[in-house]
Design a protein around this nucleic acid. Structure first.
Lengths: 220, 220
DNA sequence: CAGTGTGAAGTTGTTCACAGCA
DNA sequence: TGCTGTGAACAACTTCACACTG
């Protein structure tokens, strides 16, 4: 009947999504501090980098399982380790990408994904001109191959960078071949069974926020 | 002393950022419905597309100034018009982009920005190989030119797609030349004067959310 | 006394409940 | 009855207040 006897489970208390979104930023900075040889960092100093409330940072770090020392702060090396482990950035995450256009190619060539353990292992397209070639060492296959490969390689993550018109169809394919999470860059809302995770990265939303703020400033 | 006499000002009540972020999605769908010739759409039906609460949609649309008819819904054409106007997607927004690498090139070539009225009018880079060439009709200049052009053309928006190490330096330049809003794709936190708007689009945050959800599913 | 850690208060955004309407 | 529109209840997240520590 003891509540805390369930094997060290911090994650029983769901971590707020805003916290998850801030963590990679902490990690990026902390890796830099580590490289510069800084030993300790306090929550207030960390908070200042991101214009956050110090308590916020303390709570965020606590969610990852980090603890600090009063008057001193947190051990940088340890924090990096804890955050990498918590975020899964120290593990390998393989993904398939469908839609090797401008955006797709950019993502394939983006070196930064390595910092998060993510690797795009294959790309797919319907354009015969792209199929058969490599992009930065990543092979581009005809979409028809998707089925075989996805099943055989146990890939969990599918990235959609196709035009909007094709996105739903690709999502259906991905679901059919056992993809567990879809990272969708097309500006449409995908319909998938509820056991499949969808993360939308809609560039228009960011743009809308900027334009709105510009507008508000002008009015003052 | 009348509260509502201040010239039709819906925007005195700040629009929640989540609302702003949802609006482009509504607009995208509505434009499609318009093209298909659909005359009316109800909030519950709109909500179903995005797995939202119908009341949420009603309130979001009200923020933009839209009103509907009981039992019928909202006039699609009118909604499109209202949202475009509210978001500013029917106006012209010119931007400079610094860092013509893979991501920068992808953004330059991205056709979708036109749907939001945004146009990247020039790109800048320090790489002599890129300078002097066009990318999809957009000229790439040496970074030194940024000063003259920004001042002369009254550009409000600056997009940073440089490596992290250069981002702060570019942000300082942008602030110096009078840029009002910075759209930052580098995974660092920029320090700018508070009158300058910064919108971060950190790809790691989205990735972190996906990996976290994958992890949680596995545990069940 | 500068910082961690945490429960309480405050704020913001979402969902519910229901009145009004055609 | 199915929808809009809105005030009230609720939930999620952030900030505050303060006890605790070296």
């Amino acid at each position: 009947m003891e509540k805390s006897m369930i094997h060290e489970d911090k994650n029983l208390v769901a971590v707020p999504e805003p916290t998850i979104r801030r963590m990679p930023a902490y990690l990026t900075l902390l890796r830099q501090l580590k490289q510069e040889g800084q030993e300790y960092i306090s929550a207030p100093r960390l908070a200042a980098f991101f214009n956050l409330d110090p308590t916020q940072v303390v709570k965020d770090l606590a969610y990852a399982g980090a603890t600090g020392r009063p008057r001193v702060g947190y051990l940088v090396d340890k924090l990096v380790e804890i955050l990498e482990e918590f975020l899964g950035f120290n593990r390998k995450h393989e993904a398939f990408l469908v839609g090797a256009g401008f955006l797709g190619s950019a993502l394939i060539q983006y070196q930064g994904f390595r910092e998060a353990g993510m690797k795009i292992v294959a790309a797919f397209d319907t354009d015969k001109k792209k199929v058969g070639h490599d992009i930065a060492g990543v092979p581009v296959f005809d979409l028809g191959k998707f089925r075989d490969l996805a099943g055989r390689l146990h890939i969990n993550i599918g990235i959609i960078t196709t035009p909007s018109s094709a996105a739903q169809q690709i999502a259906d394919l991905m679901v059919g071949w056992g993809i567990k999470a879809i990272w969708n860059f097309a500006p449409v809302s995908l319909k998938v069974p509820k056991h499949v995770i969808v993360q939308d990265t809609h560039i228009y939303s960011n743009l809308a926020v900027i334009l709105n703020k510009l507008e508000n400033v002008r009015e003052k």
